[in-house]
């Protein structure tokens, strides 16, 4: 069994397509799959990027008057997925937090935010209009957004598209594949075959050579939410990209990171990101979902579960998390 990896840096992160070398005419199918993969990422950027004024979601936000606006299929699906996330998390993952995010300074590509952060930045707190103010009409494929509201689909868009790309490549090219968009992972179901090996890095990076915990998954999705990488200073206050919609500010997070396994990348992301946004209540809610998860505690976190020391921090395992694997010989290729 061999695997092939394709990497593309876009959407402010690294995106990977991994496929198993199998079947006839594999090379042709895989190359075509890489093309499709790139196309879908480009489409996502065109439709849902909050950092480019010509994206569809920004045009929808800028030009709306509260009346229904016809949108592309992809944007409609993304907003619908975001609404589902909001419903499941009781509003903690709210797609209308774009204004709050801009108010706190996250209004451009994150590397630019970090650069400006070093020079000193002001911030203001803006409460979101709330996901219940959006109206979606599936028949006319239109969305009504309150005037002035900026949609932020960052909590769900990559995971949703990862699922969609994975399903599409499976269908079009008969590939067994794994799609990883900045840590939002969706993979084909491999059943009894060799599972997908995933390295949960201890430093939160996407560098596969980092120290980490290796485990196998048979399919579905996996997502990690963390505030380690996307944080900045504004007005002398630290901020991060997970917003508490009840305050309009960065959520008070009690965990360094949360990784969740689910039936799809979107569901895993809803669980991990939602639990982060809920603060100290997140862990209770997460247990209630029944999904396997790993929670990395911060120093001040107090939890009831049994924690295990790991690389200078403490991990708590929730649900039926796969066993950690040890590679006894040979090398991990990436």
């Amino acid at each position: 069994m061999r695997q092939v990896l394709f990497r593309q840096d876009t959407l402010g992160t690294s995106c990977f397509l991994t496929s198993r070398v199998e079947g006839v005419d594999f090379e042709r199918r895989f190359i075509a799959a890489c093309e499709t993969f790139s196309e879908r990422l480009f489409e996502l950027d065109q439709v849902a990027s909050r950092f480019r004024q010509d994206s569809e979601v920004m045009r929808l936000s800028a030009e709306n008057t509260g009346e229904p606006v016809s949108v592309s299929e992809l944007l409609f699906d993304l907003v619908e997925a975001a609404m589902r996330a909001a419903t499941i998390t009781g509003g903690y993952l709210d797609p209308t937090v774009g204004n709050s995010m801009v108010g706190l300074g996250y209004s451009k590509d994150f590397e630019l935010v970090r650069r400006d952060s070093a020079d000193g930045m002001h911030f203001r707190v803006v409460l979101p209009s709330g996901y219940r103010t959006l109206v979606l009409d599936r028949v006319t494929r239109s969305i009504s957004v309150p005037p002035g509201t900026i949609l932020d689909l960052g909590a769900t868009a990559k995971a949703f598209v990862a699922d969609r790309i994975c399903a599409e490549l499976e269908h079009l090219y008969s590939l067994t594949c794994l799609v990883n968009l900045g840590g939002d992972i969706s993979c084909s179901y491999v059943g009894q075959e060799v599972p997908w090996m995933v390295n949960l890095t201890s430093d939160g990076s996407l560098d596969p050579t980092s120290d980490g915990m290796l485990f196998g998954i048979a399919g579905g999705g996996l997502a990690t939410s963390s505030v380690r990488s996307r944080n900045w200073l504004a007005g002398g206050t630290p901020h991060h990209h997970i917003i508490d919609p009840t305050s309009g500010e960065s959520a008070v997070v009690d965990f360094e990171s949360i990784t969740v396994l689910a039936g799809s990348a979107l569901d895993a992301n809803i669980a991990s990101c939602g639990a982060m946004a809920m603060g100290h209540r997140g862990i209770i809610w997460l247990r209630g979902t029944g999904l396997p998860a790993v929670v990395k505690r911060t120093n001040r976190t107090q939890m009831d579960g049994i924690a295990r020391p790991w690389n200078g921090s403490e991990l708590e395992f929730i649900g039926d998390w796969p066993e950690e694997l040890v590679q006894l010989s040979g090398g991990v290729a990436c």
Partner: peptide, 11 residues
């Protein structure tokens, strides 16, 4: 199980 590795799950 056996495997070639490995995407990373860090975010």
């Amino acid at each position: 199980s056996a495997a070639a590795a490995a995407p990373t799950a860090g975010s």
